[in-house]
Computed example of a mutant assay.
Amino acid sequence: MTRLHLDTNRCEAHGLCEQAAPDLVHLDDDDTLIIDVPGDLDADHLDAARDAVRACPVTALSLVE
């Protein structure tokens, strides 16, 4: 299965991933990115996760198998 991974050291809280996949990730009040679906992604979430990964300008998000 595939899951969404966040490199917290790279994340700059641009929020583009949140715009691309609001059901999967969000920025909290401290501008910390939270992955709302931390485990394996189902088929319904996989396309949105790919969009979030592509949207990140600092490549802080990735998909891992």
Rank of each mutant, 00 (worst) to 15 (best):
M1P: 13
M1I: 07
T2G: 14
T2F: 15
T2Y: 15
R3F: 08
L4I: 01
L4V: 06
H5Y: 08
L6I: 06
L6A: 04
T8L: 10
N9V: 11
N9T: 07
R10K: 10
R10Y: 07
R10Q: 08
R10T: 01
C11T: 03
A13N: 04
H14Y: 13
G15I: 11
G15K: 12
C17I: 01
E18D: 07
E18L: 06
Q19D: 13
A20N: 06
A20I: 04
A21N: 04
A21E: 10
P22W: 03
L24I: 06
L24R: 03
L24Y: 00
L24S: 07
V25P: 00
V25W: 00
H26R: 14
D28F: 07
D29K: 11
D29T: 06
D30L: 06
D30V: 00
D31E: 12
D31T: 15
T32N: 02
L33A: 01
L33H: 06
L33P: 10
I34T: 11
V37E: 08
P38Y: 15
P38V: 10
D40Y: 07
D42N: 08
D42V: 04
D42S: 03
D42W: 02
D42G: 05
A43R: 09
D44M: 07
D44I: 07
H45M: 04
H45G: 03
D47S: 03
D47P: 11
D47C: 01
A48L: 02
A52D: 10
V53F: 03
V53M: 08
V53N: 02
R54L: 06
P57R: 09
P57N: 15
V58W: 15
T59C: 13
T59L: 13
T59V: 06
A60F: 12
A60H: 15
A60P: 11
L61W: 02
S62A: 14
S62I: 09
L63N: 10
L63F: 08
V64A: 06
V64M: 13
V64N: 15
